[in-house]
Design a protein around this nucleic acid. Structure first.
Length: 418
RNA sequence: GUGGUCGUGGCUCAACGGUUACAGCGCUCGGUUGUGGCCCGAGCGAUGUCGGUUCGACUCCGACCGAUCACCCCA
């Protein structure tokens, strides 16, 4: 009888095993701690959103049409798995009247996102993000606040060597004119540009700036810079962001080629990288201002700024940085029944759990094996049980480190383990 | 989605196209031990899948699947 093929995880989806999971826990705990310290409150939004919400937030960009998981549900609704958190958070902010409350709303969200990309290290089809949003304020101080929060979080989990790249991309007042300037600049040399860049020239000239194609490099250098063509409001905002960063003692590098492809992004954009050099998939997080998104979703025009970071990448980096960390003990107490004492062992374990984490070895036939299990579990105490003693409701408590045995009545175990 | 590299037990890895696919870690069982760590012994467990070339394929070829790198995109 032939076995059918064993079923494996879907491509791009992965399991987080206990050994790795402890890094996730550290990252999540730090996230909750740091967001709390900044007064950000947790929000949970659905993984499934109306496809139209995602599409409006994604414009008609290639990335969104190709990468979004979309399907029609049983009620003929067109839905999508969220590729990022912001669109849903902004929807929830308006749908539940958070825009009527004190402004800005400071929110954070932890959860899975989905993108139908080609998987690679640090890039998965299901990945987890910490997402932080401050919605309802145009203050440049909030741009810096989310950057500072992101930096503090990464510092707290031990990632101290970071590089912050920063840029501004103007807004709907000044960017259109700048884009025209860009097009005028590149048109004469269009034939010399890479194929991709030639296509982007008319449709999305901003993206031409972050092209990695070598043929584009010489032309990029002389291109007009947005920072020379900002409107007064954007220039003032840009100036303030930098002054605030300086006074917060946050180092940054200006990267005039750091852009966002979508129209609703405005002004500040930033990305965080690990120090030193890494692969291409090494951005730990990024964000910026998106004053145009609320309107794109059909709500009242509302300024906002946010940040998102990939937990998969952060924890992968943590694991390489922190590789010496000892694995956590599974339990502090191991109960070893010698003989047919399952009921009694279960009861003793129940008693021990009042004081300490406890596991029972119900399986090993051999006493030596039981001891080996206790060793591997990293237990501090072993509770030995034998039929004669169990009948008297006593057990022997052994402290592993000092190798000392004491006969203890079951009821006294919690006190002795405290 | 495009191009490159790679795919041997749970992990790390060995095998000129030729016996029964090497070993360590691991896991199970046992010995030893002052009831446990060390040590000793036995056992478990693999050529991603399908097809092709060949007397013979882990090895060569193709497709698929998966991983990885770059592009793309970004987290």
């Amino acid at each position: 009888m032939p076995h059918s093929e064993p079923i494996k995880a879907v491509r791009g989806m992965r399991d987080i095993l206990p050994d790795e999971r402890r890094f996730w826990r550290a990252a999540e705990n730090a996230a909750r701690e740091v967001t709390g310290r900044f007064g950000y409150e947790e929000i949970v939004t659905p993984i499934v959103e109306p496809a139209e919400l995602i599409e409006r937030a994604g414009d008609d960009s290639d990335a969104f049409v190709k990468e979004v998981y979309r399907f029609v549900d049983r009620g003929d609704r067109r839905v999508a798995l969220r590729p990022e958190a912001t669109a849903g958070v902004v929807r929830a902010y308006f749908e539940h009247g958070l825009d009527k409350g004190p402004q800005p709303s400071r929110l954070y969200l932890l959860g899975p996102m989905f993108r139908y990309d080609r998987p690679q290290k640090g890039r998965y089809r299901q990945f987890f993000q910490l997402d932080v949003e401050a919605i309802g304020s145009a203050s440049p101080a909030l741009d810096v606040e989310v950057i500072e929060l992101a930096r503090d979080w990464l510092h707290r989990i031990g990632l101290r060597d970071l590089r912050l790249e920063l840029n501004t991309i103007g807004d709907s007042k000044c960017r259109p004119a700048y884009l025209e300037l860009l097009k005028e600049y590149f048109r004469p040399v269009k034939e010399k540009l890479s194929r991709d860049s030639q296509q982007r020239l008319e449709r999305n000239p901003l993206r031409l700036l972050d092209s990695k194609a070598v043929e584009d490099a010489p032309h990029k250098m002389g291109a007009p810079r947005i920072t020379d063509h900002l409107c007064d409001d954007c220039a003032r905002h840009w100036e303030l962001v930098q002054r605030l960063l300086n006074s917060a003692n946050i180092a940054y590098e200006l990267n005039p080629y750091l852009v966002r492809g979508l129209d609703y992004y405005t002004r500040t954009v930033f990305e965080l990288f690990p120090g030193g050099r890494g692969g291409q998939q090494d951005a730990l997080g990024g964000g910026g201002r998106y004053d145009g998104l609320a309107e794109a979703e059909g709500w009242a025009s509302t300024p906002a700024v946010g940040f998102a970071s990939g937990l998969d990448r952060v924890t992968e980096l943590l694991a390489t940085t922190d590789k010496g960390a000892a694995t956590q003990p599974v339990a502090e107490v191991v109960v070893l029944p010698d003989g047919d004492l399952q009921l009694e062992a279960a009861e003793v374990a129940r008693i021990c759990r009042k004081a300490r984490s406890t596991v029972v070895d119900y399986d090993s036939a051999r006493f030596t094996s039981k001891w080996r299990l206790a060793e591997k579990a990293g237990a501090r105490w072993v509770v030995l049980m034998r039929p004669g003693e169990a009948a008297r409701r006593v057990a022997r408590l052994r402290e592993v480190a000092s190798r000392t045995d004491t006969e203890v009545r079951w009821e006294e175990l919690p006190a002795r383990l405290a």
